[in-house]
Design a protein around this nucleic acid. Structure first.
Lengths: 136, 136
DNA sequence: TTGGATGCAAAGTCTTTGCACGGTA
DNA sequence: TACCGTGCAAAGACTTTGCATCCAA
């Protein structure tokens, strides 16, 4: 298991107490978090603007992944596991299940032929209710 | 071809000059538009807040579809064709190609079994460069 | 020592809301 | 006429930025 310090170094990012803390939070919470979620977990011990700045730096470095979830006005961020995966997100508790294997990888090739588009990426998120929440 | 008046009536929405105009704009521009795009097309002849209000009403009535596209801070809206389709969006010109047939429809059933989640919906958008833009 | 990171406060961007007026049913 | 829609102005929510200070390399 890599230390936070090592992770930062790999991405040519300076170490700081704040960056260390944020990495730890995202490591310990494998679900999408808003900047505010993170801020609250820190008991406001760091400025909100710093949280935003670090999240932006991490996203640019691809340490974090930005999710686009409709009906959410705040941006959600998740640790980038560096594999091509998708997420099954619980609409009630926001818990995330990571789905290995991309169901449309093959389809992209087909689409490329059909449309003559240069296909670069896609965005797939699946929504539902997790076993616990669906009972209610 | 239904008139705008009829479309509004079907959704139990009152007719107004402004709603009529917006429907026409979305009908003539089958690509994702921001509230501001619409406002500009109107030569500012209607208030921006009205544009937002109408877009919200239309989205709630499912006349429009709200897209979630990462790296876009403004919300994008598109006429809802009332079929389950996905969109292939050009990263350069925002032109949209509608894809009939859902490549993951079958996959959702499989996933339901695997995960015990109650799967409700998904969100798939595909990004790339259209034949014209990819030359550049 | 030095440049980048942070805290604080202020501003920016996108969107929503309150209220008076106007138009549709 | 009664109610909903609209314009205008202001506020709200989320995020970014400027600047002085602080800290890691």
């Amino acid at each position: 298991m890599k230390s936070n310090k090592e992770i930062l170094k790999e991405h040519s990012l300076k170490f700081s107490k704040q960056r260390d803390l944020l990495l730890t939070i995202f490591n310990e919470n494998k679900r999408p978090l808003t900047a505010e979620d993170v801020y609250n977990m820190l008991d406001s011990s760091m400025d909100l603007s710093t949280v935003y700045r670090i999240i932006n730096v991490f996203t640019e470095a691809e340490i974090l992944l930005k999710l686009s979830m409709q009906n959410e006005s705040k941006a959600l961020y998740l640790l980038n596991e560096n594999r091509h995966v998708h997420h099954l997100v619980c609409l009630s508790c926001h818990q995330v299940k990571t789905i290995e294997g991309c169901p449309i990888h093959h389809y992209e090739h087909e689409l490329k032929k059909q449309t003559d588009y240069d296909i670069v990426s896609h965005n797939l998120e699946i929504f539902g209710y997790c076993p616990e929440c669906k009972e209610k």
